[in-house]
Amino acid sequence: MIAIVDYGMGNLHSVSKALEKMNHEIAVTSDPETLIQADAIILPGVGAFGDAMYELGKRDLVTILKEAARSDKPILGICLGMQLLFTSSDEHGYHQGLNLLPGHVVRFEGDYNIPHMGWNWLSFKHPHPFFRGLEEGHVYFVHSHHVLADNQEDVIATTDYYQPVAAIVARRNICGMQFHPEKSGKLGLQLLERFARLSEKAGAL
């Protein structure tokens, strides 16, 4: 079973429906016990970084997620959920993240449209089981902050928005997608499917 963390930060319909259509068993939950039992965890999220950490903390989920990460359980953060995997963020003041991957979240700065909103090209940077048999393509982004990862090896795909922007991060069982795979047409669904399928095979990630 794949657990989708429900912590009041964004609608979860599309992610859960997409996985159901692929015949994966899912649970939309904030129950720590269900998360502990899950084969994999998806951490979605829309909104502000600080609010999200507060909401996770309030439900006693910060420790659960850290322990899950340590126990090699596959975790996928989507959009804000990916940013939460990192050390810290500057969004409305300094906030600590889950610190499962080293790096910092900063706001886009410059004379261009913010948020970065729309379909942008996903470039694969490092070989990864996610990408096997897939071709690069467009996926849908909407965000005003982006991740500066300490280790470039953790950034397996990027997009270009006036600078290279981390689009997919992965280190062993910890994965994140800055775009919305559930809103990104066929390629997005294929990437979501890859995560779900690899999660079922122990040690595949």
Binding site: N11, H13, S14, K17, A18, Y140, V142, H180, E182, K183, S184, G185, K186, G188, L189
Partner: peptide, 28 residues
């Protein structure tokens, strides 16, 4: 929200934050 694989916006008749909540949580 169940059927589309692209984002969508809903407008018309949204006058309060509760209206927004209702539409966004339905999946817009």
């Amino acid at each position: 929200a169940e059927q589309l694989t692209i984002p969508f916006t809903v407008g018309g008749g949204i006058g309060t934050v509760d209206d927004m909540f209702s539409i966004l949580w339905a999946g817009a």
